[in-house]
Write a protein that binds this DNA or RNA. Sequence first.
DNA 1: ATAATAACCTGAGGGC
DNA 2: TGCCCTCAGGTTATTA
Length: 270
Amino acid sequence: MPELPEVETTRRGIAPLLEAQRIHRVIVREPRLRWPVPANLKQIKGLVIAEVSRRAKYLLLRLERGTVLWHLGMSGSLRVVPHDTPPQTHDHLDIELDNGNCLRYRDPRRFGCCLYTQRPVEQHRLIRDLGPEPLSAAFDSDYLYQASRRRRIHIKPFIMNSQIVVGVGNIYANEALFSAQILPGHRAEKLSDKRYARLVTSIKSVLAEAIKYGGTTLQDFSKPDGKPGYFRNRLAVYARNGLECERCGDRIKLRQQAQRATYYCTGCQY
DNA sequence: ATAATAACCTGAGGGC
DNA sequence: TGCCCTCAGGTTATTA
């Protein structure tokens, strides 16, 4: 499900309800996630949540001691509800707070994970080798151009590689390449520095715009308040195959690329 | 080292 | 109504 805008939308929704709150207890109904929910998660009982931050698509609950790393996988979502709210199917995990609320995790496909580490989270194996944040100054055209040299991989899976840049999933890779007018099947090494400058600008603007609209709701995703994200109405190519391109009027095409649906316009992407 | 593929899961939707 | 097939927002592990 969630790409960076959906995770950031989730973070903004739950942070004010969690920060400065003390954890009352942890309830694990289904430990079989992407990685099994570890026994040490129970150790967070009694700790105060200092800050809810984000790195890539990971939500980080920074506690007074240690950090909870939370990934929503393809179908995960988080909401804050009164702790006596009856859990529904696929509500796998609750973090109850002293104030009577609980942070509830739902994830039908169980591709997400919830881990706890007391070591500096930057050194965690899931975090350590990640590329720069796409909305940071470190992600610029010079960086991306240099990273692309002697890379024969197609540009679309290249920008979806979290070691190159984080947070760009299938929806926004399609949208950013359309915005930059770059065909997704080009080899990364073939594109000029000038075209990378356009691509970097497009990635930043598409992600920032999607955050502004609260993310994209296709099926599972909803914001922590239960409402959908409205960026779906602003998608230019994703899930629009056969429809007219808003820029040139050609029909949007669909093909498979690295096992993912790729939407593009041969009229104006080149 | 890099790139392509398989795998992990459940649910929704379409065709018959 | 039900069965079978395909597909879905991610990432890691395995293979070439």
